[in-house]
Design a protein around this nucleic acid. Structure first.
Lengths: 202, 202
DNA sequence: CCCCATTGTGCAACTAGTTGCACAATGGGG
DNA sequence: CCCCATTGTGCAACTAGTTGCACAATGGGG
């Protein structure tokens, strides 16, 4: 739905080959819209077929050769259209929260280690964003583009900040919980055989 | 990937028919794992075929009739396994941030209204979460299950708080921007024909 | 009694994203 | 010179989620 527009944006910022795009999707743009190289090549083909981008004239366009693309006017127009069009935020899907909800039923055994790991990953990401902020947005720069890019980076920083704080709080909560976590089968308030979860009832 | 586990969790909390599940996915569980009724029916079929759930014996199991399901021991075991298994956070994909990045290239014309709309939507969601918190988590309740459920709700509240604050900040930033937003084609620092974005160059 | 809105279940086709390869060109090390 | 790791491009099959219907049962209004 949005990959073609992510690619158009990246190509407008700088005409690139598939591999260069892949690298840029591993940082910068990819921080909020990830894509694999296979997706990118496929989409480049479609965009070219639709006349939104074109391959830059290269010396020898043999296979296994870099092919760079640039955005055509129709591509820019499509991107402007898409950017301005209203879009509903799509409903969230978060595995970790779902697992926690499941843990409330089947027990928290085993999940704590992974929470800790996620905390570390988010801390690392946060540090990386802060590094970028320091490097790319020193106090002086405030052209409209800088402001927008900074705003986007700020969203990343604030989101990672939320996750690190929430995860830290969750882990704290866990240490206060009875050892091994809540027993399974508690929602109905009746007795259950409980246990490790792998034991079949009756 | 996670839908079957979301369904197992919901069914463990309370055996339900497809429609009941659909309703519960429109609130509660669905706040962090959304699913359509078609997805749910399809998945119920698979789970039953795999022996993880079974249909509760009903009076007349004719078509067009409610069929309720309950989780079998194998289903509970699978859910416990999945909950404890390590999982990498999957890379984020956020359309709004992508559109803002595109706007930095093709101009911000038209996007502001949608930011305002998103702000309202997030404010409404936040209010709803706060309502639920007040209703379901009065000061006294703090069984392990309550604590976990509250923790999850807190994540929702904090996320919506982030979005409302960030969007408010973004809108503020916009009023400070030159009218109509940045001109297109600015990244190379050279002159461009700028304009509305639909005008082809040359 | 029959029409029609509502409730409930489900299939089929499609779109987007992921996984697992295949294979060409390049260039340095033995 | 030839092997083999690296770089770069791409196809094919699969999985997950979405969209658009179809159709049965139920129950109230004319």
């Amino acid at each position: 739905m949005s990959l073609p527009h992510a690619i158009l944006t990246a190509l407008l910022e700088k005409p690139s080959s598939g591999l260069e795009l892949t690298r840029r999707f591993d940082k910068s743009i990819g921080y909020f819209w990830s894509a694999t190289h296979q997706q990118i090549y496929r989409e480049l083909g479609k965009l070219e077929a639709e006349g939104l981008i074109r391959a830059l004239p290269a010396e020898q366009p043999a296979r296994g050769q870099r092919k760079s693309y640039e955005v055509l006017p129709a591509g820019r127009a499509e991107l402007a259209r898409w950017t301005a069009a209203a879009q509903d935020p799509k409903p969230m899907r978060d595995t970790l929260l779902l697992r926690l909800r499941a843990a409330a039923v089947v027990g928290t055994a085993g999940i704590e280690a992974d929470l800790r790991r996620h905390l570390e990953l988010h801390e690392r990401q946060l540090a990386e964003y802060r590094e970028i902020e320091k490097r790319d947005f020193p106090p002086g720069r405030d052209s409209p583009q800088d402001r927008l890019h900074h705003l986007i980076l700020r969203a990343g920083i604030d989101l990672e900040t939320f996750w690190t704080q929430w995860l830290a709080h969750a882990l704290q909560e866990f240490t206060a919980l009875p050892a091994g976590g809540p027993a399974p089968g508690v929602t109905d308030g009746e007795a259950s055989n409980g246990g490790a979860g792998t034991t079949p009832r009756r």
